[in-house]
Design a protein around this nucleic acid. Sequence first.
RNA 1: GCGGUCGUAGCUCAAUUGGUUAGAGCGCCGGUUUGUGGUACCGGAGGUUGCGGGUUCAAUCCCCGUCGAUCGCCCCA
Length: 425
Amino acid sequence: MSSIQKPPQRPRGTQDMIGEAAERFDHVVRTFDRVRRLHGYARVEVPVFESTAVFARGLGETTDVVSKEMYSFEDRGGDSLTLRPEFTAGICRAFVENGWQQLAPMKLATWGPLFRYERPQKGRFRQFHQLDAEVIGAGEPAADVEVIALGAQLLAELGVADRVVLQLNTLGDAETRGRWRDALVAHFSGHLDVLSPESRERLAKNPLRILDSKAESDRALVADAPRIDAYMTAEAGAFFERVMRGLEASGVAFERAPALVRGFDYYRHTAFEFVTQALGAQGTVIGGGRYDGLIGMMGGPETPAVGWAGGIERLALLAGLPAEVRMQVAVVAADAQGEEAALRLLAGLRSAGVSAEQGWKGNLKKKMERAGKAGVRLVLLVGSDELAAGEATLKDMGSGEQRRVALGEAVTAVRARLAGGGLWG
RNA sequence: GCGGUCGUAGCUCAAUUGGUUAGAGCGCCGGUUUGUGGUACCGGAGGUUGCGGGUUCAAUCCCCGUCGAUCGCCCCA
C-alpha cells in the first residue's frame, strides 16, 4: 500500500492566513471598499490571467517584471497566457476591447491577487494582493489629485497616515522625458568607471532608475546629474504645478522627490509613492502615476489615465487590528428537549440582525465554556424547565446575572439588552 | 538572480564544552458528582529536533546538500 510520503507544502512565496492575519487583510479590503464608494469609484472585474502580450507590451519588454518575473504558461489550446503581475494593463485591455471609451471618464476600483516570480521577503510574495484605483479618460490634473486623494484618505482611515509620506514627482510629457533621459545617459556614460555594476546595467535598460541607486559609489554622480526641471516643457511644468496646487487645496501633504522614478514604461507626468520606513526594504505601500500613452499603445483610442496600486499585505502589516468582531449571542439547549426551541431562537435572532452562535458540542458546561470563549455578551438557554413555562433563560455573561423571558419575547429582550446598556430587569 | 542569518510540540522558546526517556509556558482535550462560562486545582494528547546525506562509539548541537522563512541587493505594491 502506497501512501503520500510527504504532506504537500504551500508553494514558495504564498501564504495561508487565519485569525489575526486574515482579519487584518480583510480590514484593509473593507476599508478600501468603503472609501472608494465615498469617492465614487465603480467596481471593475477583470481576469486573473490574460494573453501574455497584454503585459509584455504594456509594461515594457525590458522591465524585470516582464523579462523574468511573469508566471506564463501555454494552455491546452497552445495560447500563451500569463497570471497577471499587475492590474493596469488588464484593465486597459478591457477598456479597449469593450469600447468603454463611451463611458469615459471612468473611475474604477478593484482588488485581488497578483503573481510575480520573485524572491520572497517580508512584504513581498509570489502571490500577493493589491488594491487598485484608476481614472481613465481624464487628462486633467484634477484627476491626478482626485486619485491621490483617494489613497490619502484610505491611509488615514486605516490609521497609518502618520507613518506614511507621499513622495511626488513628474516625469514630464513624452518630449520632456525623452530629452531628460538623453541627458542622463550622456551624463552617466561619461563616468562608466565610477558607476556601480547595477547602475551600468540600468544605463541600458532604464537610466532614470540610476537616480535612486543605493550604491555609495553612485552618490556623487547622482547628485550632479541633470534634473528634469531643466528639460520640462512649459505645458508639462504647468501641469505639474496644477497637481501640486490641487493637492495642497485638498489637504494632502506631499514632498517633492526628484529622484522618484517608476518602473513601467508607460508612466508619464505625475509619479508618486506613499512610502513608510516601518516595513524595511519594501516600504512602498501605494504606488502609481499617470499613463497617458498606454491605451493608445494597446491599439485603443488615445486615452489619458492615472491610477495607483496598493499592497494589501503591506498595508495590513502597518494597520492595527480592527475592532474585535465578536458574536453577540450564544443560544444553548440545556437538554435534548430544548434543542428545537433553541434552533427557533437562533433563527429568530439571526433574521433580526443579531449575530448568534449555537453551542452544539458537549454537555451544558462545555457549551457555556465555548460561549465564554467566543466572547458573547448574552446567552439564551432553553431546556425542559424553561419550556414547561414557555420561557428561556437570558444570561448576561459580563455580570453573570440571569432571568427568565417569555419565548415569544426572547428576541426583543435580547435586542433591548444589546442596544440598551439599560439596567437589568 | 546575488550575499548574510535562521529552522526544536498548534504558538513563543529551553536543552551544560556533541552524551543516553528533548523540557516549559500558552493553547488544545478531559476531570474537580446532579442544568451554567471567565479565576483555581488535577490529569491527558501532541515532536522520526524542516527534509536528505556525511563525520562520530554517540548529533537538536559539527560538515554538505535541499526546502522554507528572514535581512539586505535587485525589483516593486
